[in-house]
Design a protein around this nucleic acid. Structure first.
Lengths: 210, 210
DNA sequence: ATCTAATCAGGAGTAACTAG
DNA sequence: CTAGTTACTCCTGATTAGAT
Protein backbone atom coordinates (compact mmCIF):
# COMPACT_ATOMS: atom_id res chain seq x y z
CA UNK A 1 0.00 0.00 0.00
CA UNK A 2 1.11 3.52 -0.69
CA UNK A 3 0.24 4.55 2.75
CA UNK A 4 3.09 2.47 4.05
CA UNK A 5 5.68 4.58 2.29
CA UNK A 6 5.98 7.73 4.31
CA UNK A 7 9.10 9.73 4.82
CA UNK A 8 9.96 11.56 7.94
CA UNK A 9 9.48 15.32 7.73
CA UNK A 10 12.57 15.84 9.81
CA UNK A 11 15.21 13.47 8.55
CA UNK A 12 13.67 12.61 5.20
CA UNK A 13 14.25 8.92 5.73
CA UNK A 14 11.41 6.53 5.11
CA UNK A 15 9.39 5.50 8.08
CA UNK A 16 9.08 1.82 8.63
CA UNK A 17 8.50 1.94 12.33
CA UNK A 18 5.34 0.45 13.59
CA UNK A 19 4.64 3.60 15.57
CA UNK A 20 5.16 7.01 14.10
CA UNK A 21 3.65 10.42 14.50
CA UNK A 22 1.38 12.52 12.36
CA UNK A 23 1.72 16.18 13.08
CA UNK A 24 0.94 19.21 11.00
CA UNK A 25 0.04 17.11 8.00
CA UNK A 26 3.40 15.38 8.02
CA UNK A 27 4.75 12.17 9.40
CA UNK A 28 7.66 11.85 11.75
CA UNK A 29 9.81 9.21 13.32
CA UNK A 30 8.92 9.28 16.96
CA UNK A 31 12.46 10.25 17.86
CA UNK A 32 12.62 12.91 15.15
CA UNK A 33 9.79 15.03 16.45
CA UNK A 34 11.61 17.64 18.43
CA UNK A 35 11.16 21.28 19.25
CA UNK A 36 13.14 23.28 16.74
CA UNK A 37 14.33 25.54 19.49
CA UNK A 38 15.23 23.47 22.50
CA UNK A 39 15.39 20.15 20.68
CA UNK A 40 13.44 18.47 23.42
CA UNK A 41 11.67 15.33 22.17
CA UNK A 42 7.98 15.80 21.62
CA UNK A 43 6.82 12.27 21.02
CA UNK A 44 5.67 11.88 24.59
CA UNK A 45 4.51 15.45 24.95
CA UNK A 46 0.80 15.97 24.91
CA UNK A 47 1.00 18.94 22.64
CA UNK A 48 3.23 20.47 20.08
CA UNK A 49 2.93 23.53 17.93
CA UNK A 50 3.47 24.12 14.28
CA UNK A 51 4.30 27.43 12.74
CA UNK A 52 5.77 27.97 9.31
CA UNK A 53 6.59 24.31 9.13
CA UNK A 54 8.57 24.47 12.32
CA UNK A 55 7.68 22.42 15.35
CA UNK A 56 7.82 23.92 18.82
CA UNK A 57 7.28 22.66 22.29
CA UNK A 58 4.64 24.54 24.18
CA UNK A 59 7.04 26.69 26.13
CA UNK A 60 9.01 27.80 23.13
CA UNK A 61 5.99 28.41 21.04
CA UNK A 62 4.32 30.68 23.47
CA UNK A 63 7.61 32.29 24.19
CA UNK A 64 7.93 33.19 20.58
CA UNK A 65 4.45 33.74 19.34
CA UNK A 66 2.30 34.21 22.38
CA UNK A 67 3.74 37.47 23.46
CA UNK A 68 3.66 41.00 22.25
CA UNK A 69 6.21 43.57 23.19
CA UNK A 70 4.95 45.47 26.19
CA UNK A 71 6.42 48.66 24.93
CA UNK A 72 5.57 48.85 21.25
CA UNK A 73 2.78 46.27 21.37
CA UNK A 74 3.97 44.66 18.20
CA UNK A 75 4.58 40.98 17.86
CA UNK A 76 7.77 39.28 18.78
CA UNK A 77 9.07 36.71 16.38
CA UNK A 78 11.25 33.73 16.93
CA UNK A 79 14.40 35.41 15.78
CA UNK A 80 13.96 38.58 17.77
CA UNK A 81 16.07 39.16 20.79
CA UNK A 82 13.94 39.95 23.75
CA UNK A 83 14.17 40.95 27.35
CA UNK A 84 11.81 39.72 29.98
CA UNK A 85 10.72 41.40 33.14
CA UNK A 86 8.20 39.93 35.47
CA UNK A 87 5.65 38.55 32.99
CA UNK A 88 6.40 41.09 30.33
CA UNK A 89 8.41 40.72 27.19
CA UNK A 90 10.16 43.46 25.28
CA UNK A 91 12.10 43.75 22.09
CA UNK A 92 15.68 44.35 22.98
CA UNK A 93 15.47 47.86 21.63
CA UNK A 94 12.23 48.54 23.42
CA UNK A 95 13.62 47.71 26.80
CA UNK A 96 14.63 51.19 27.78
CA UNK A 97 14.10 53.57 30.65
CA UNK A 98 10.79 55.28 30.20
CA UNK A 99 12.15 58.45 31.59
CA UNK A 100 15.54 58.97 30.00
CA UNK A 101 15.08 56.63 27.09
CA UNK A 102 18.35 54.85 27.64
CA UNK A 103 18.34 51.25 26.51
CA UNK A 104 19.07 48.87 29.32
CA UNK A 105 21.74 46.21 29.16
CA UNK A 106 21.83 42.65 30.30
CA UNK A 107 22.31 42.38 34.01
CA UNK A 108 21.66 46.02 34.64
CA UNK A 109 19.28 46.79 37.46
CA UNK A 110 15.96 48.25 36.53
CA UNK A 111 12.51 48.67 37.99
CA UNK A 112 9.03 48.00 36.74
CA UNK A 113 6.43 50.46 37.87
CA UNK A 114 2.97 50.01 36.47
CA UNK A 115 4.48 48.28 33.48
CA UNK A 116 6.84 51.15 32.89
CA UNK A 117 10.49 50.31 32.78
CA UNK A 118 12.86 52.59 34.65
CA UNK A 119 16.60 52.58 34.99
CA UNK A 120 17.86 52.40 38.52
CA UNK A 121 18.60 56.08 38.87
CA UNK A 122 15.21 57.17 37.66
CA UNK A 123 13.48 54.56 39.68
CA UNK A 124 15.13 55.81 42.84
CA UNK A 125 14.41 59.36 41.86
CA UNK A 126 10.77 58.51 41.43
CA UNK A 127 10.21 56.54 44.60
CA UNK A 128 12.22 58.85 46.78
CA UNK A 129 9.53 61.42 46.69
CA UNK A 130 10.50 63.01 43.44
CA UNK A 131 12.88 65.26 45.26
CA UNK A 132 16.64 64.85 45.18
CA UNK A 133 16.33 68.10 43.32
CA UNK A 134 19.96 68.26 42.57
CA UNK A 135 21.32 67.07 39.35
CA UNK A 136 20.41 64.87 36.52
CA UNK A 137 19.40 61.31 36.39
CA UNK A 138 21.49 58.51 35.09
CA UNK A 139 24.75 60.27 34.87
CA UNK A 140 28.01 59.17 36.25
CA UNK A 141 29.11 57.09 33.39
CA UNK A 142 28.40 58.73 30.17
CA UNK A 143 24.87 58.34 28.95
CA UNK A 144 21.88 60.26 30.28
CA UNK A 145 21.42 63.83 29.14
CA UNK A 146 18.06 64.74 27.70
CA UNK A 147 17.32 65.88 31.23
CA UNK A 148 14.60 63.59 32.48
CA UNK A 149 11.60 64.01 30.31
CA UNK A 150 8.61 64.72 32.47
CA UNK A 151 5.95 62.06 32.08
CA UNK A 152 2.46 63.38 32.19
CA UNK A 153 -0.29 60.97 33.11
CA UNK A 154 -3.49 61.13 31.17
CA UNK A 155 -6.39 59.92 33.23
CA UNK A 156 -9.12 57.80 31.79
CA UNK A 157 -12.76 58.66 32.21
CA UNK A 158 -13.22 55.98 34.86
CA UNK A 159 -10.19 57.06 36.78
CA UNK A 160 -11.47 60.62 36.90
CA UNK A 161 -14.84 59.39 38.00
CA UNK A 162 -13.42 57.49 40.93
CA UNK A 163 -11.10 60.36 41.83
CA UNK A 164 -13.88 62.90 41.76
CA UNK A 165 -16.30 60.72 43.67
CA UNK A 166 -13.72 60.34 46.37
CA UNK A 167 -12.86 64.01 46.30
CA UNK A 168 -16.45 64.86 47.05
CA UNK A 169 -16.44 62.64 50.06
CA UNK A 170 -13.05 63.71 51.31
CA UNK A 171 -10.85 66.18 49.53
CA UNK A 172 -7.91 65.42 51.77
CA UNK A 173 -7.60 61.67 52.12
CA UNK A 174 -4.94 60.21 54.38
CA UNK A 175 -2.22 57.89 53.23
CA UNK A 176 -4.29 54.77 53.56
CA UNK A 177 -7.18 56.22 51.67
CA UNK A 178 -4.81 57.47 49.04
CA UNK A 179 -3.39 54.03 48.59
CA UNK A 180 -6.85 52.58 48.37
CA UNK A 181 -7.87 55.06 45.72
CA UNK A 182 -4.63 54.46 43.91
CA UNK A 183 -5.27 50.77 43.81
CA UNK A 184 -8.82 51.00 42.56
CA UNK A 185 -7.85 53.43 39.84
CA UNK A 186 -4.67 51.57 39.00
CA UNK A 187 -2.68 54.75 39.44
CA UNK A 188 0.38 55.05 41.60
CA UNK A 189 0.00 56.51 45.03
CA UNK A 190 2.16 59.48 44.12
CA UNK A 191 0.10 60.34 41.05
CA UNK A 192 -3.06 60.04 43.07
CA UNK A 193 -1.66 62.27 45.75
CA UNK A 194 -0.68 64.91 43.23
CA UNK A 195 -4.12 64.81 41.71
CA UNK A 196 -5.69 65.54 45.07
CA UNK A 197 -3.23 68.32 45.72
CA UNK A 198 -3.95 69.94 42.41
CA UNK A 199 -7.62 69.37 42.87
CA UNK A 200 -7.67 71.15 46.17
CA UNK A 201 -5.78 74.04 44.63
CA UNK A 202 -8.24 74.09 41.75
CA UNK A 203 -11.20 74.16 44.08
CA UNK A 204 -9.75 76.97 46.11
CA UNK A 205 -9.04 79.03 43.04
CA UNK A 206 -12.56 78.61 41.75
CA UNK A 207 -14.16 79.54 45.01
CA UNK A 208 -12.05 82.68 45.15
CA UNK A 209 -12.82 83.47 41.56
CA UNK A 210 -16.49 83.83 42.40
CA UNK B 1 -47.37 57.59 56.23
CA UNK B 2 -43.90 58.35 57.34
CA UNK B 3 -43.56 55.10 59.16
CA UNK B 4 -44.58 53.14 56.11
CA UNK B 5 -41.72 54.39 54.00
CA UNK B 6 -38.34 52.78 54.17
CA UNK B 7 -35.37 55.03 54.11
CA UNK B 8 -32.23 54.34 52.18
CA UNK B 9 -29.30 53.25 54.32
CA UNK B 10 -26.97 55.34 52.22
CA UNK B 11 -28.64 58.66 51.56
CA UNK B 12 -31.29 58.53 54.25
CA UNK B 13 -34.00 59.63 51.84
CA UNK B 14 -37.22 57.68 51.72
CA UNK B 15 -37.51 54.97 49.14
CA UNK B 16 -40.52 55.22 46.93
CA UNK B 17 -39.04 53.39 43.98
CA UNK B 18 -40.77 50.31 42.86
CA UNK B 19 -37.49 48.41 42.91
CA UNK B 20 -35.06 48.72 45.68
CA UNK B 21 -32.47 46.53 47.31
CA UNK B 22 -32.32 44.76 50.62
CA UNK B 23 -28.79 44.11 51.75
CA UNK B 24 -27.31 43.57 55.15
CA UNK B 25 -30.64 44.11 56.84
CA UNK B 26 -31.07 47.52 55.31
CA UNK B 27 -32.82 48.94 52.29
CA UNK B 28 -31.13 50.89 49.54
CA UNK B 29 -32.04 52.86 46.48
CA UNK B 30 -30.68 50.79 43.63
CA UNK B 31 -28.34 53.61 42.67
CA UNK B 32 -27.20 54.16 46.25
CA UNK B 33 -25.74 50.72 46.78
CA UNK B 34 -22.10 51.32 46.11
CA UNK B 35 -18.82 49.98 47.31
CA UNK B 36 -17.63 52.20 50.13
CA UNK B 37 -14.14 52.11 48.75
CA UNK B 38 -14.24 52.46 45.00
CA UNK B 39 -17.80 53.78 44.79
CA UNK B 40 -18.62 51.38 42.02
CA UNK B 41 -22.35 50.66 41.80
CA UNK B 42 -23.34 47.27 43.13
CA UNK B 43 -26.95 47.01 42.10
CA UNK B 44 -26.11 44.88 39.10
CA UNK B 45 -23.25 43.08 40.73
CA UNK B 46 -23.82 39.49 41.65
CA UNK B 47 -22.26 39.85 45.01
CA UNK B 48 -21.52 42.43 47.56
CA UNK B 49 -19.95 42.16 50.97
CA UNK B 50 -20.93 43.63 54.25
CA UNK B 51 -18.62 44.27 57.12
CA UNK B 52 -19.26 46.57 60.05
CA UNK B 53 -22.15 48.13 58.20
CA UNK B 54 -19.97 48.99 55.25
CA UNK B 55 -20.63 47.64 51.79
CA UNK B 56 -17.79 46.43 49.61
CA UNK B 57 -17.39 45.11 46.10
CA UNK B 58 -15.68 41.78 45.91
CA UNK B 59 -12.27 43.11 44.96
CA UNK B 60 -12.14 45.68 47.71
CA UNK B 61 -13.47 43.31 50.27
CA UNK B 62 -10.82 40.73 49.68
CA UNK B 63 -8.21 43.43 49.57
CA UNK B 64 -9.16 44.60 53.02
CA UNK B 65 -10.02 41.44 54.77
CA UNK B 66 -8.23 38.73 52.84
CA UNK B 67 -4.50 38.06 52.83
CA UNK B 68 -2.29 40.72 54.33
CA UNK B 69 1.09 41.90 53.19
CA UNK B 70 3.77 41.05 55.71
CA UNK B 71 5.37 44.43 55.30
CA UNK B 72 2.60 47.00 55.21
CA UNK B 73 -0.03 44.75 56.80
CA UNK B 74 -2.58 45.94 54.31
CA UNK B 75 -4.71 43.71 52.17
CA UNK B 76 -3.69 41.93 49.04
CA UNK B 77 -6.24 41.51 46.32
CA UNK B 78 -6.35 38.85 43.69
CA UNK B 79 -5.05 41.16 41.02
CA UNK B 80 -2.08 42.45 42.96
CA UNK B 81 1.38 41.29 42.12
CA UNK B 82 3.02 39.68 45.06
CA UNK B 83 6.25 38.12 46.14
CA UNK B 84 6.38 35.20 48.47
CA UNK B 85 9.15 34.29 50.80
CA UNK B 86 8.92 31.32 53.09
CA UNK B 87 5.31 31.53 54.22
CA UNK B 88 5.05 35.29 53.86
CA UNK B 89 3.42 37.32 51.15
CA UNK B 90 4.36 40.85 50.11
CA UNK B 91 3.08 43.41 47.69
CA UNK B 92 5.62 43.70 44.93
CA UNK B 93 6.46 47.19 46.09
CA UNK B 94 6.70 46.13 49.70
CA UNK B 95 9.28 43.48 49.01
CA UNK B 96 12.25 45.65 49.70
CA UNK B 97 15.33 45.62 51.86
CA UNK B 98 14.38 46.70 55.34
CA UNK B 99 17.58 48.56 55.73
CA UNK B 100 18.16 50.44 52.51
CA UNK B 101 14.60 50.38 51.25
CA UNK B 102 15.62 49.17 47.83
CA UNK B 103 12.96 47.10 46.12
CA UNK B 104 14.18 43.63 45.28
CA UNK B 105 13.93 42.16 41.84
CA UNK B 106 12.93 38.76 40.69
CA UNK B 107 15.70 36.29 41.15
CA UNK B 108 17.72 38.59 43.32
CA UNK B 109 19.17 37.09 46.47
CA UNK B 110 17.76 38.24 49.73
CA UNK B 111 17.57 37.16 53.34
CA UNK B 112 14.72 36.83 55.77
CA UNK B 113 15.58 37.61 59.35
CA UNK B 114 12.72 37.49 61.77
CA UNK B 115 10.33 38.41 59.00
CA UNK B 116 12.50 41.29 57.92
CA UNK B 117 13.62 41.25 54.33
CA UNK B 118 17.20 42.23 53.63
CA UNK B 119 19.11 42.64 50.41
CA UNK B 120 22.25 40.58 50.17
CA UNK B 121 24.60 43.41 51.00
CA UNK B 122 22.78 44.43 54.13
CA UNK B 123 22.28 40.88 55.18
CA UNK B 124 25.99 40.30 55.05
CA UNK B 125 26.65 43.54 56.82
CA UNK B 126 24.30 42.52 59.58
CA UNK B 127 25.63 39.03 60.15
CA UNK B 128 29.24 40.02 59.78
CA UNK B 129 29.38 41.93 62.99
CA UNK B 130 26.78 44.55 62.34
CA UNK B 131 29.35 47.28 62.32
CA UNK B 132 31.28 48.21 59.20
CA UNK B 133 29.84 51.62 59.77
CA UNK B 134 31.00 52.57 56.34
CA UNK B 135 27.75 53.59 54.72
CA UNK B 136 26.62 53.54 51.15
CA UNK B 137 23.53 51.65 50.33
CA UNK B 138 23.61 48.52 48.32
CA UNK B 139 25.23 49.56 45.22
CA UNK B 140 28.52 51.21 45.40
CA UNK B 141 28.08 52.54 41.93
CA UNK B 142 27.44 56.07 42.94
CA UNK B 143 23.93 56.20 44.11
CA UNK B 144 23.97 55.68 47.85
CA UNK B 145 22.93 59.09 49.12
CA UNK B 146 20.76 58.65 52.18
CA UNK B 147 22.48 55.79 53.91
CA UNK B 148 19.97 53.43 55.43
CA UNK B 149 16.74 55.23 54.99
CA UNK B 150 14.98 55.81 58.24
CA UNK B 151 11.60 54.16 58.20
CA UNK B 152 8.88 56.28 59.62
CA UNK B 153 5.72 54.54 60.74
CA UNK B 154 2.46 56.11 59.74
CA UNK B 155 -0.27 55.28 62.20
CA UNK B 156 -3.77 54.55 61.13
CA UNK B 157 -6.74 56.33 62.57
CA UNK B 158 -7.65 53.32 64.69
CA UNK B 159 -4.16 52.89 66.00
CA UNK B 160 -4.05 56.51 67.08
CA UNK B 161 -7.38 56.16 68.75
CA UNK B 162 -6.19 53.22 70.82
CA UNK B 163 -2.92 54.90 71.64
CA UNK B 164 -4.56 58.13 72.72
CA UNK B 165 -7.19 56.38 74.77
CA UNK B 166 -4.46 54.53 76.62
CA UNK B 167 -2.42 57.67 77.00
CA UNK B 168 -5.29 59.36 78.76
CA UNK B 169 -5.50 56.54 81.24
CA UNK B 170 -1.78 56.22 81.76
CA UNK B 171 0.78 58.30 79.95
CA UNK B 172 3.64 56.15 81.20
CA UNK B 173 2.67 52.52 80.82
CA UNK B 174 5.02 49.81 82.05
CA UNK B 175 6.50 47.09 79.89
CA UNK B 176 3.55 44.78 80.22
CA UNK B 177 1.04 47.44 79.36
CA UNK B 178 3.17 48.51 76.46
CA UNK B 179 3.19 45.02 75.13
CA UNK B 180 -0.56 44.75 75.48
CA UNK B 181 -1.11 48.04 73.64
CA UNK B 182 1.35 46.97 70.98
CA UNK B 183 -0.54 43.79 70.37
CA UNK B 184 -3.97 45.37 70.10
CA UNK B 185 -2.73 48.02 67.71
CA UNK B 186 -0.60 45.60 65.74
CA UNK B 187 2.44 47.80 66.24
CA UNK B 188 5.76 46.64 67.57
CA UNK B 189 6.55 47.23 71.19
CA UNK B 190 9.41 49.56 70.33
CA UNK B 191 7.26 51.73 68.08
CA UNK B 192 4.61 51.89 70.77
CA UNK B 193 7.17 52.84 73.34
CA UNK B 194 8.55 55.61 71.18
CA UNK B 195 5.07 56.93 70.56
CA UNK B 196 4.48 57.25 74.30
CA UNK B 197 7.82 58.94 74.74
CA UNK B 198 7.10 61.45 72.04
CA UNK B 199 3.58 61.88 73.30
CA UNK B 200 4.75 62.77 76.76
CA UNK B 201 7.18 65.26 75.28
CA UNK B 202 4.42 66.75 73.16
CA UNK B 203 2.13 67.13 76.10
CA UNK B 204 4.79 68.86 78.10
CA UNK B 205 5.57 71.23 75.29
CA UNK B 206 1.96 72.18 74.84
CA UNK B 207 1.39 72.79 78.51
CA UNK B 208 4.43 75.06 78.56
CA UNK B 209 3.28 76.84 75.48
CA UNK B 210 0.13 77.98 77.22
C1' DA C 1 -3.55 79.87 24.40
C1' DT C 2 -5.55 77.00 27.88
C1' DC C 3 -5.84 73.45 31.11
C1' DT C 4 -3.65 70.85 34.31
C1' DA C 5 -0.02 67.10 35.72
C1' DA C 6 4.33 67.40 37.69
C1' DT C 7 7.83 69.74 40.17
C1' DC C 8 9.86 72.83 43.45
C1' DA C 9 10.57 75.51 47.70
C1' DG C 10 9.51 75.91 52.16
C1' DG C 11 6.81 75.00 56.51
C1' DA C 12 4.44 72.07 60.14
C1' DG C 13 4.12 68.04 62.60
C1' DT C 14 6.18 64.27 64.55
C1' DA C 15 8.52 59.28 64.41
C1' DA C 16 12.98 57.78 65.26
C1' DC C 17 17.30 58.48 67.11
C1' DT C 18 21.12 60.14 70.41
C1' DA C 19 23.17 61.47 74.64
C1' DG C 20 22.98 61.67 79.31
C1' DC D 1 13.46 57.38 81.43
C1' DT D 2 14.00 62.77 79.44
C1' DA D 3 15.61 66.48 76.33
C1' DG D 4 17.29 67.68 72.22
C1' DT D 5 18.00 66.60 67.37
C1' DT D 6 17.36 64.57 62.92
C1' DA D 7 14.86 63.37 59.12
C1' DC D 8 10.58 61.60 57.01
C1' DT D 9 5.76 62.61 55.48
C1' DC D 10 2.45 65.54 54.02
C1' DC D 11 0.86 69.96 53.06
C1' DT D 12 0.37 74.68 50.34
C1' DG D 13 1.34 77.94 46.78
C1' DA D 14 3.96 79.07 42.91
C1' DT D 15 5.93 77.51 38.83
C1' DT D 16 7.10 74.57 34.82
C1' DA D 17 5.89 71.99 31.05
C1' DG D 18 2.92 68.31 28.27
C1' DA D 19 -1.26 67.75 25.62
C1' DT D 20 -5.05 69.65 23.07
Amino acid sequence: MKTELRSCAACGEPISDRFFLEVGGCSWHAHCLRCCMCMCPLDRQQSCFIRERQVYCKADYSKNFGAKCSKCCRGISASDWVRRARDLVFHLACFACDQCGRQLSTGEQFALMDDRVLCKAHYLETVEGGTTSSDEGCDGDGYHKSKTKRVRTTFTEEQLQVLQANFQIDSNPDGQDLERIASVTGLSKRVTQVWFQNSRARQKKHIHAE
